[in-house]
């Protein structure tokens, strides 16, 4: 791992988000580096998911900036997308396509090599071995979430954004996520949005949102 490759930083400054009448938060600032895991916490409706959506440009902040430093260059949330893996209830899957077809489509769309063996390995890693050709319409919510993890990891992204990472999971699934988060420390950073104490325990840093807006 060379020095420039090691340089990975996510920073947000003076961040504010307002939904037409309701201010969600104001003046958020902070930064995150390679190997770190941040947990975003707060009550329902406090804007945990919104924070993650801001980080990958699915929504625009009302004020403030978000910047990524990666391999010696600066990116905004939109231009950073090729290096972001996102898992969350906002991302739905195509009911008509199989697990393998999802990976096939997204690999091609992202300009990655067509590597059947790697896709199968990835599906096996998230516990979908033997279900590769089944259509998502027949998946349980837990299985769909597993496929979302496989999709997020497809490009081995340095940034992992996990919204309610274990909401659909049993204990076995939870261990899988714990393992993935630990792995991610090796080559990138992770942001979790969660209300679950056990998930939050994986984090080095905690950002609590929503308190200001309530006052």
């Amino acid at each position: 791992m060379n020095r420039t490759d090691a340089a990975l930083q996510l920073s947000w400054q003076a961040l504010a988000k307002t939904y037409s009448t309701r201010p969600v938060y104001d003046q958020l600032a902070g930064e995150l580096h390679r190997g770190e895991v941040l947990a975003v916490r707060g009550p329902n409706g406090a804007g945990k998911s919104t924070f993650l959506r801001l980080l990958c440009g699915l929504e625009r902040p009302t004020a403030g900036t978000i910047a990524y430093q990666w391999q010696g260059q600066t990116y905004n949330p939109n231009t950073m997308r090729p290096w972001i893996g996102f898992v969350g209830p906002d991302v739905a899957l195509y009911r008509e396509l199989s697990a393998l077809e999802h990976l096939q489509f997204l690999a091609k769309a992202r300009g990655l090599a067509a590597d059947q063996a790697y896709w199968r390995e990835l599906l096996a890693q998230v516990g979908l071995a033997g279900r590769e050709h089944e259509r998502v319409a027949h998946f349980s919510s837990g299985m769909a979430l597993r496929l979302k993890y496989a999709i997020a990891l497809l490009a081995k992204p340095p940034i992992l954004l996990l919204d309610e990472p274990t909401a659909m999971f049993d204990e076995h699934g939870r261990q899988l996520v714990a393992q993935l988060v630990e792995q991610q420390r090796q080559h990138g950073l992770t942001v979790l949005a969660t209300n679950d104490e056990r998930d939050a325990a994986w984090a080095d840093l905690v950002l609590t949102v929503g308190a200001a807006a309530r006052g």
């Binding site: 699915l58 972001i84 739905a92 999709i151």
Partner: peptide
């Protein structure tokens, strides 16, 4: 309607 647009937005350039 199926909320798959988010998946596309995250993974595919808009013009594509």
């Amino acid at each position: 309607e199926a909320h798959t647009a988010t998946l596309l937005r995250l993974n595919v350039p808009a013009l594509a």
